[in-house]
Design a binder for these strands. Structure first.
Lengths: 177, 177
DNA sequence: GACGTCTAGTTGACCCTTCAACTATGCACC
DNA sequence: GGTGCATAGTTGAAGGGTCAACTAGACGTC
């Protein structure tokens, strides 16, 4: 592993493929701006006392049939761990914005239901949040740029779905001190 | 920009501008994939016992002259709050990967210095991390897509710099329980 | 040279996320 | 119909991030 000695290819161990200058530039630009973006959106939302992940949960519910969704469906939609959704839902439940009930078809399942107060809340956030998304993302790009961004991220998503995470179970090889 | 003022130049209360279907699609694609991406990168790094933000800090230091940077420069480079950088640096210092010292030119300042062990550590992470970035982002896009992504995010960054965060101090207007 | 203000960085408390158990139900298979 | 395993969701502790308060040095001004 330590490519000291004769770091020759006994078999595997290809030469590390660094990023080209262009790749590096794009990657860094992504890294920087994505941080800034989530920072900005979070901050704008904060006025209303909700985090982005709370907003997303409520938002998904508000778009769902009858304002209800299974926990796991919610987790998939907003790309968060089950556990995190549980905690978030608990917080929102305490505020009276959602309620939990058993899933009719599956004894293990839990359905989250948006309450009237919850719907009212999301709707009151939505306008300003969309404004925020426009200000920080949509309106600063040309339609073509935005479309290209969406397309690229779509490809990232597709790749991720195909292979969510690659380190083999027995992996995590070299680990010093 | 104010959209050419095509429809409504009234000073007050414009109609809420929702996202168009295309805008919505792109925005959602971004939101989803950016979560997945940071998730995947974080997970791959986790093998080595560092988080992405720790890695970035070390990485910036390793690229800097003499492996040293001011705290504030570091914070700007990796787009994190001062406080967060302090905490992260403290953690890395405990592991012996960085050291803190006073800034020569400014009595208030602190410079973070990458130690030998620290440099060795980053270098050992780097190969696999780049691999990870390739697998989840760079290699799943065409060069043109990656360039477009970088360009779009560059524009997001520029806009953010111009106006980091917009809620006026007296803002956060309507706030119901 | 003392005052007010601004910038750099740290600290600690609180909150959110993560992670590793854990419960409970569904499902296959013999 | 019991055994084994997979899935759904929860829990609590541990760790990282945020926020507001704080220390301390710089800088301008009178």
């Amino acid at each position: 592993m330590r490519h000291g000695g004769s770091w020759n290819d006994e078999r595997v161990e290809e030469a590390p493929r660094w990023l080209t200058a262009e790749e590096q530039t794009s990657w860094r630009a992504y890294l920087r701006a994505s941080r800034e973006l989530s920072f900005a959106l979070e901050k704008d939302l904060q006025c209303h006392g909700v985090s982005l992940s709370e907003y997303e949960l409520l938002s998904m519910l508000s778009e769902a049939d009858d304002g209800r969704l299974r926990m796991s469906a919610l987790a998939d939609l907003i790309v968060q761990s089950r556990s995190r959704v549980t905690h978030t839902a608990t917080r929102l439940e305490r505020r009276g914005w959602v309620e939990r009930g058993p899933a009719p078809d599956d004894g293990r399942g839990v359905v989250v239901q948006l309450t009237d107060a919850g719907r009212q809340a999301v709707e009151s956030f939505a306008v300003e949040h969309v404004e925020s998304v426009r200000r920080h993302l949509v309106d600063v790009l040309t339609p073509a740029q935005l479309a290209a961004l969406g397309e690229a991220m779509g490809a990232v998503h597709t790749a991720y779905r195909a292979d969510p995470t690659t380190p083999e179970p027995s992996e995590c090889p070299t680990m010093e001190l």
